[in-house]
Design a protein around this nucleic acid. Sequence first.
DNA 1: TATAGATAAGACCGCACGGTCGGTTAATCC
DNA 2: GGATTAACCGACCGTGCGGTCTTATCTATA
Lengths: 183, 183
Amino acid sequence: MDKNLKRMATKQRLQVTGLEMFYKNGYYNTSIDDVLKELSLSKGAFYYHFDSKEDFFIQIIETLLARKMYSMLIEPIEGHENTFDLILQCFEDALETAVHNEFDFGFVLGNIINEFNGRNETIMKHLIDILKIWEVNLVTAIQRGKFNGHIDRHVDSEGVAVFLMSAYIGVRTLMVETAPSAR
Amino acid sequence: MDKNLKRMATKQRLQVTGLEMFYKNGYYNTSIDDVLKELSLSKGAFYYHFDSKEDFFIQIIETLLARKMYSMLIEPIEGHENTFDLILQCFEDALETAVHNEFDFGFVLGNIINEFNGRNETIMKHLIDILKIWEVNLVTAIQRGKFNGHIDRHVDSEGVAVFLMSAYIGVRTLMVETAPSAR
DNA sequence: TATAGATAAGACCGCACGGTCGGTTAATCC
DNA sequence: GGATTAACCGACCGTGCGGTCTTATCTATA
């Protein structure tokens, strides 16, 4: 196999199962050895590709997480007309896959933001960045909706955006135990 | 001082600062030694009063947490008339103290439920119990509101209750970084 | 005041985890 | 075909944490 390809392959395998395990068990409760065991790789391999556990996670955020959230919660809304229905539909879809998948890439955010709050500035910054992106996109989507007449002009775009986000995160939190009924 | 009082005093001091630190730094990220250092106590003292770290936390949940949530989110609603406004007011108050206090006992729950999900069955059960209590109380409050005519009869009590809870948790999560603006 | 039981002290143990480092394999280059 | 290097291996180290155990101190009571 091509050297470059192999490198990327290993790195990506690490990131993918890394995200999966971090999501399921939390960051601090997932050891590097756990991830390596899952892939039958060694410490050496890991520290060849990443500087540290923190670096590892940040790279996961920037590549996998950001991309996923874009494709699930932002892209579907962009450039369409009837914004409001679309947003709802989009949330529905996201929650749907969350129910089926057990691990929806979609929203590790809510889960993990709590874990790092006050404990790891660096990682926290990256997570908040992603949230910001989501928020901005929601706001512009809503404003577009107003412009098109699909949404009442008097609505506070910013407020609604934040409301939608918090509702989504809240539901995801509750789903954890009350099962899908929460929807 | 009365022996019994002293015993209770030490135990309570441990629980109070324990909750405080668990809330701020998370359970797994707060060591027993941290708590003991804060109070200038020794390991011996701790293991004299508690069987284990887990036991410690469960006792905190059952005494402090359950009580706090009762006095902040349940009691104010009980036995009044205009339920809906009251619930809102109550949430407002809770969020308000959350803003000022930095550490609002009020809702450690949302923060911490995530941390234990999938990692500690036992503790998880206790946390869910508290949530259930909250839910039940909200539901009956809403039904009372319907009965009084303050709330539309066609409303799905259960659904609204869960909705209120998830919204609350969601807002609390976002408040973490977007500052109070989220409200 | 002597003493037993209630509290607390703190040295110690075992283990898991993040990280390091010298070494090995296999592809690539000259 | 020998040298170089990317990719990986795995033993090892330091540290921090939960938990144990022996020992010391306080205090009520006879």
